[in-house]
């Protein structure tokens, strides 16, 4: 009897095909969609990407950070610094903000990694507060009242408004797809196996020779890279930045609720969570605070009753995985190549 280990399932092959078609359709939106639709989609893309990165940190790396707004804001400010003081093309600031954010995350990791578990969470929040208060002190960046992107920098993206909207739209879509694909590939690699092992038991993974510290550091730096790049993109769309908005805890509140409600520890979870978040937000936006109260209560109930989130409930019921990162052992399967 031969056995083999497989990644993919029928559902995942169908899922991949659907995803590919969906991406192709989304690519064409600038030719037929109106401006409001595109703006909404851009926001969905960057919130989804942020949620995926937080899920990688917390759901796989076991690093529950409530301070990711530090990197959103940092990416935003790097956009302004690179454009205004170094005269770099607006679009190019996105990858550069990612790289610089990753570099800056190293000394931060050196400090916050001294805190374990819950205390790590609040430690990352303190770091974000330091960024907020620190940037508010920098007069060259407008201090507490912030600054706007120069018209020339906006024009440099593309000459006409329609072209600018399309460029930003494709950039946002590319970032979201790259983040999801990157996390998927990472989790299917040896590192992904190490991360899953750490998530399930730190002691056991260490005893099997996994370097826990190195794996967690890698995840932290990757999340900083992605979050800073997305931060730069967000502030290209917003044009105006202030410290209190850029380093707002609400960035992290939103993505935590999305991941918890959708399902932590899976790639599908944040996608489901993001869709629910925007479906609820559109009709409930006029009720501001009640909307946040509703989200908070839902997150608490989901965490208590269905810790794997809505996707987790669904996947468990039907044994479906669209982005399978676990390995399945097929006993007695026919040993054919591929």
């Amino acid at each position: 009897m031969t056995s083999r280990v497989v990644h993919s399932t029928r559902a995942s092959r169908i899922g991949m095909s659907v995803a590919a078609v969906l991406i192709l359709v989304l690519l064409t939106v600038p030719w037929w969609g109106d401006r409001a639709t595109m703006r909404l989609l851009v926001e969905i893309f960057y919130i989804l990407a942020l949620a995926q990165l937080w899920n990688l940190l917390a759901g796989y790396g076991g690093l529950v950070s409530v301070g990711q707004q530090a990197f959103v804001g940092l990416g935003g400010y790097l956009l302004f610094i690179l454009v205004i003081f170094l005269d770099i093309g607006t679009i190019w600031t996105v990858p550069m903000a990612g790289v610089l954010g990753a570099v800056i995350s190293l000394p931060i990791a050196f400090i916050v990694f001294r805190l374990r578990g819950h205390y790590f969470a609040i430690g990352t929040w303190v770091v974000a507060e330091v960024f907020l208060l620190g940037f508010a002190q920098v007069k060259a960046l407008g201090g507490g009242s912030g600054m706007s992107l120069p018209i020339a920098a906006i024009k440099s993206i593309a000459a006409s408004r329609a072209d600018r909207d399309a460029t930003i739209y494709w950039l946002a879509l590319a970032l979201a797809v790259a983040v999801i694909a990157g996390i998927y590939l990472l989790l299917r690699s040896r590192y992904g196996l190490a991360l899953t092992a750490i998530r399930d038991s730190e002691e056991a993974s260490r005893s099997l020779g996994v370097d826990n510290f190195r794996a967690k550091l890698l995840v932290y730096i990757l999340a900083a890279f992605g979050t800073s790049a997305i931060g730069a993109l967000i502030y290209i769309t917003k044009i105006r930045i202030t410290p209190s908005a850029a380093f707002d805890i609400n960035w992290t509140v939103t993505i935590i609720f999305i991941v918890v409600i959708g399902g932590i520890g899976s790639i599908e979870g944040p996608i489901v969570g993001t869709l629910i978040f925007f479906l609820l937000r559109e009709p409930l936006a006029p009720y501001g605070t009640w909307y946040l109260i509703l989200l908070g209560v839902t997150a608490v109930v989901v965490m208590l009753k269905a810790p794997k989130g809505l996707w987790g409930l669904f996947a468990e019921r039907f044994d479906i995985a669209l982005f399978p990162v676990q390995r399945r052992l097929l006993l007695g399967a026919v040993d054919k190549p591929g």
């Binding site: 529950v64 409530v66 969470a121 209560v297 608490v300």
Partner: peptide
């Protein structure tokens, strides 16, 4: 670690 952290986080927002 996650449930207590996220539940108290939710309560904080509420």
């Amino acid at each position: 670690l996650l449930p207590p952290l996220l539940v108290t986080f939710g309560i904080s927002i509420v």
